[in-house]
């Protein structure tokens, strides 16, 4: 349970609005990500939106709450997983003969499950971009100036 009266973070107005909207922002990011091959969007946009939703929690509630939800270790693991998944999809293209071959069934056009490996690649790019940008922001926030001696 999130304590609204915690002294960290911003005022109660910002906290309440964040509580009410953060889930929908996350949902919108996932929608943009999963429909990248039918409508505008894709892995880059979805990844940045989802990273921004966690940054939103961090700005409103302070760093402890956000790091409870997604800490640095998990972000590093997700980022590496994204890179690994992308290169794995590329190597699996050798089933069709060449690197980065779209070897899966293309499916029916304009459906959610279509376009072969593009959906999987989008998810890999999302993991990479989203976790990477969140990690960068966490590093910038946690860095405190020690002062010159």
């Amino acid at each position: 349970m999130i304590n609204n009266r915690d002294s960290q973070g911003m005022s109660v107005i910002v906290k309440t609005i964040t509580r009410l909207t953060i889930g929908l922002i996350l949902l919108y990011g996932v929608y943009i990500l999963l429909h990248g091959h039918i409508t505008p969007g894709g892995g880059f946009a979805g990844g940045v939106i989802i990273a921004l939703s966690f940054i939103h929690i961090m700005l409103a509630f302070g760093k402890n709450v956000a790091l409870e939800k997604l800490n640095q270790t998990w972000s590093k693991i997700f980022e590496s997983t994204g890179a690994l998944l992308f290169i794995t999809i590329a190597f699996l293209g050798f089933f069709g003969g060449v690197f980065f071959n779209n070897f899966l069934d293309k499916g029916e056009h304009f459906e959610l499950f279509s376009a072969g490996t593009i959906l999987l690649s989008n998810i890999a790019i999302f993991l990479k971009v989203g976790a990477g940008l969140f990690l960068l922001f966490v590093a910038l926030v946690l860095f405190k100036i020690g002062g010159r001696k």
Partner: peptide, 28 residues
């Protein structure tokens, strides 16, 4: 978002809603 609904959208939507509720549901 995905009107009109069909089976694949419904299944993916349930998964996505579980994910969203798991990540940020405790503060809603």
């Amino acid at each position: 978002f995905t009107w009109p609904p069909d089976l694949s959208h419904l299944l993916v939507g349930i998964l996505v809603a579980i994910f969203v509720a798991y990540m940020t549901g405790d503060m809603f």
